[in-house]
């Protein structure tokens, strides 16, 4: 223990080494047992971190750090599969062709019941549509504006700055039109559900007959991914429901994937820029870390290469009596 704390005091063989070769304490001491060595600590840390990462890769969840939840497993609904979305990688952007197709699915299917309050037409520009396309789509919608000089409200065609129109004027109308259920706003739905994009895709493609013994309330549909199993929304995506501009076959799984990517973009519009900046930040910060490691070593070399000598008082010249 003393040798670890004061290596230079104990080891009389401490060399005054040149700056670049300053050595650190315990490596130079051969007496350290293997289990206390840096190699052993490093190896076991690497093994622990590696096995956790591998478990996480295999099962999509960490054994030691489960998602905080005060629910039982049944109440949470079936855990969604991790689907191979293109934008999951650290170096990947959204598939913008998919966002464009997904917008079409939202517009033609979902928007009949679901609002998208936080998205304005201008948000689509440069993401999935050109300025002219977005303007044209906005102009197709009539917005109430005003009051004008006479104090009257008036109708005008939409502008880029307008937000997506909602299907219902208020919550009560939405509930009345959907048998009491409230279709949630979809602007943040991907971030607002456990499982995120995987959950949305699994839910849209997961409708099936209820297993034996499961009784559903009147007007409910069975979906194992939905917490509790009974969901007011019926299955909506069937093959060929929309016709894509780019000729992609509109299978129900293709539409589910596209609309999920669109909704993921709607929830995280900063996604592409964020990951790009992440790479820039990591390049700059790792360089700064490397420089700071060198500077620290350089500045500390005086302390690390000190030689502390104990100079005992000289014995009396005449020897013991």
């Amino acid at each position: 223990m003393l040798s670890q704390a004061f290596p230079r005091l104990v080891s009389r063989a401490a060399r005054v080494s040149p700056i670049g070769k300053a050595r650190f304490s315990s490596q130079s001491s051969p007496s350290v047992p293997f289990l206390a060595s840096k190699t052993a600590i490093g190896t076991s840390t690497l093994l622990a971190a590696g096995s956790l990462a591998w478990y996480n890769h295999l099962y999509g969840t960490s054994s030691l750090l489960p998602e905080a939840s005060a629910n039982s497993a049944a109440e949470n609904g079936m855990h969604p599969t991790t689907w191979p979305f293109e934008h999951y990688g650290p170096f990947e952007t959204f598939n913008h062709a998919s966002i464009r197709r997904g917008y079409q699915v939202y517009r033609e299917v979902c928007s009949a019941c679901h609002s998208l309050d936080r998205i304005a037409w201008r948000n689509l520009v440069g993401v999935s549509h050109t300025v002219d396309e977005a303007k044209a789509m906005a102009e197709e919608v009539e917005y109430t504006d005003g009051p004008n000089d006479e104090g009257e409200m008036f109708q005008r065609p939409g502008k880029l700055a307008d937000y997506m129109p909602a299907p219902y004027p208020n919550e009560e109308a939405a509930r009345a039109g959907n048998g009491g259920g409230l279709p949630p706003d979809l602007s943040l739905i991907v971030k607002a559900r456990h499982g995120n994009a995987d959950y949305i895709y699994s839910l849209l493609t997961g409708y099936c007959d209820p297993p034996a013994g499961v009784k559903l309330a009147e007007g409910m549909n069975y979906n194992p991914y939905f917490p509790g199993g009974g969901i007011a929304m019926a299955r909506v995506l069937f093959d060929g429901l929309v016709e894509y501009d780019d000729g992609t076959p509109a299978t129900s799984s293709q539409m589910a994937k596209d609309v999920t990517v669109f909704l993921n973009w709607a929830a995280e519009p900063e996604h592409d820029q964020r990951k790009k900046m992440g790479l820039q930040a990591l390049m700059i910060l790792s360089t700064l870390t490397a420089i700071s490691l060198y500077v620290k070593r350089f500045k500390w070399s005086y302390l690390k290469t000190r030689k502390i000598v104990y100079d005992p008082p000289k014995p009396a010249r005449h020897g013991p009596l």
């Binding site: 930040a281 990591l282 910060l285 790792s286 700064l288 870390t289 700071s292 490691l293 500077v295 620290k296 500045k299 500390w300």
Partner: peptide
């Protein structure tokens, strides 16, 4: 300079 190392590691 020793603190600076961990500050950059924190930023990473």
């Amino acid at each position: 300079f020793k603190d600076l190392i961990t500050i950059f590691l924190f930023f990473i």
